[in-house]
Design a protein around this nucleic acid. Structure first.
Lengths: 211, 211
DNA sequence: TAGATTGTTAATCGATTAACAATC
DNA sequence: TAGATTGTTAATCGATTAACAATC
């Protein structure tokens, strides 16, 4: 079982490695990857050890091989389908973001309650009325839902999603959702993030020259 | 010095407490707050201990007092100004999100390179061409920047922001930015989050019934 | 009072970092 | 070869959880 933190870093490693691959580079050292992502070389080596890949002692790691190993871990064999709930600005932003297909995740449908945003293709994704949630999720066999709707209806929609067979939720609403144990939730809380930045900025301004 | 993780939770506590306050409730127990946010009561009590607030042993914590103590920690005395770089869908989504004024953070300006999005008021925020970055940041004394632009120009803009006096960055671009030590960066990486959800969903599907 | 709750110290857990032998 | 790098174990660090006395 690979720890959550390592999974996060693997995703970032892969992104960086793909950039390197495009530049025709073949090998890189743990300390290069570490420097690029503000980590320690030890941590990089340990993560790579955990996924069972082995470099060569002078040349470092093969970029191509490492990408393949990480991809096998992150993507598995089969594709996984996702849906977006809420096609406001945030929903559209995410659609565009993932329209460049990366990895094995595909956004196969979007939902909204606004009749202007329904039964149309928006940002390349077919958009349905939320009344069709259960039907479309079953048809597409989607397992992930990305929640970008307003907090008010979020818990209700979540219950419907779980009922329809969704197993993972990326939650952009700022409320905490209740779900069964076997559903994985990742909370993406913009308010908290901004308040955190503000706190540490305030701290650093207050402590200016106090070292 | 309060740890990062505690700061994050304080932000969430406050949000929840404000909801409770609106419902005219006066007191709550550590276990209530814990249950609502999927934490342990011990952790809630420890966090509250760290910020130096004390409840009463039978009634629990005064909602109003606790909000005030958290606000004093998170907000400090003075307001802090923020700017958004990039007024695409994501920039607009964030503008709307924070147009309801919460805490002491205010978004005072936005920047873009697209002439259609410049010298206008978008989602309630005055939008300028990026050429005016330094000028406006100095005029408004903004200390935080929210980056929602495309990865290509992000490092260049970041250098300009740091030069203009920005001390905290909320980074929505998926690249890792280089900044001086005294600039606080919070990375908000949607790709990594989605890949993480996909990984754990895949794991749980693979292990179905394996318990 | 008895029961429930707080505040806080000690124990545990997990993740990161240091250290270093092996080796290309 | 000498120097740099990997792989991995041990040590450290930090955060969470358990335990429990104090007390309303």
């Amino acid at each position: 079982m690979i720890p959550e933190k390592t999974i996060e870093r693997l995703s970032k490693y892969r992104r960086y490695l793909l950039e390197k691959l495009e530049k025709q580079e073949e090998y890189l050292y743990s300390h290069e990857l570490a420097a690029a992502l503000h980590l320690t070389p030890e941590q990089v080596r340990r993560d790579i050890m955990l996924i069972g890949y082995t470099g060569t002692q002078r040349k470092g790691y093969s970029i191509k091989e490492l990408i393949d190993v990480i991809s096998k871990i992150l993507d598995g064999d089969k594709k996984i389908n996702a849906v977006i709930i809420g096609m406001g600005h945030l929903g559209k932003a995410i659609s565009n973001y993932f329209s460049i297909k990366r990895s094995n995740i595909e956004i196969v449908a979007a939902f909204d309650i606004d009749s202007n945003k329904v039964d149309r293709i928006i940002s390349g994704i077919k958009s349905y009325h939320v009344d069709n949630l259960d039907l479309i999720i079953n048809e597409t066999d989607a397992k992930i839902a990305i929640l970008t709707l307003s907090p008010a209806g979020a818990q209700d929609i979540t219950d419907q999603l779980v009922y329809a067979g969704i197993k993972g939720i990326l939650n952009f609403t700022s409320i905490t959702l209740r779900v069964p144990e076997d559903v994985y939730i990742e909370n993406y809380d913009m308010i908290t993030s901004l308040e955190k930045v503000a706190y540490f900025v305030k701290e650093s301004i207050d402590n200016e020259g106090t070292l």
